[in-house]
Amino acid sequence: MQYLIDVLSQGSLYALCALGIALTFGVMRLINFAHGEFMMVGGYVLVVAGDIPVWAALLSSVIIVGFLAVATERIAFRPVRNADPETMLVTSFAVSFLLQSLAVLLFGSLGRSVRVFPPSITGVMHIGGLNIRWLDIITVAVTVTLLVSLMAFMKTRHGVELRAAAENFTVARLLGVKANQVIGTAFAISGVFAAATSIVLAAQRGLVEPTFGTTTMLFAFIAVIVGGMGSLPGAVLGAYALGLISVTSQALLPLGLRQFRDAFIFLVVVLILLLRPEGILRGHAARVRI
């Protein structure tokens, strides 16, 4: 039961991050490795925000990262939009590296400690023998809220355009859907998710360093693949599946094997992909485009 809470919390973190990755992959077929650095920037915003009220710090993080994501698309990704996927991938690596170097330059490589929420809500609640961290509740609540908002957004006109573009970009454009606008929207939302991930992650870690987002981003990326490239529900499903696999393998593996936990996680992932090569939910990426 306690482990279930751990699964939910970890899965939610991965889901937040995975959705951000899946959104931009959906419309642009771009595997954005800079997403982890968007998160890192969000973390440093919280560091710099220091003692301003919590809501203001969170809001600045969301706004700045959202803006950064849109600006990155405009400056770095738009020129290579029609290039082959490898070029886009390399571009995202370059952006990632640039942002990391910038962080080292501005803040040093050692990292900065950060307190996101006041101490009163970083504690533990004891309910019927369970230890529930406030942070777990916040993590799940943020994820559910954003997920519901995203679902609501997807029903709006812009949301429908985004989903259409994710399924078949060319046909969407043939209907007059503006490519730049849709991709910009996707990046803005992706940035908001990166900021939300960074808030939860910073609260959980208490430390922001230049590689702040890297590991979470890698796991979220795996979640996206497991869930089905380009499928948003798939990304969420993949994230919780990965949370489940990693928590159970940590909990159940005997000590001698626990150091191979990540290898074990990847083994399960490979097995899933062998059974379902296109992921749990088949993404649109696999479908034929006009």
Binding site: Q2, Y3, I5, D6, S9, Q10, L13, N131, R133, D136, L201, Q204, R205, T214, T215, T216, V247, Q250, A251, L255, R258, Q259, R261, D262
Partner: peptide
């Protein structure tokens, strides 16, 4: 008792659960 984790882990909740 003993347990392991990785430097990149965002959370060591399962390890804490075990210790608790």
């Amino acid at each position: 008792g003993q347990d392991t984790f990785k430097n990149g882990d965002a959370s060591i909740s399962p390890q804490i659960t075990r210790m608790k």
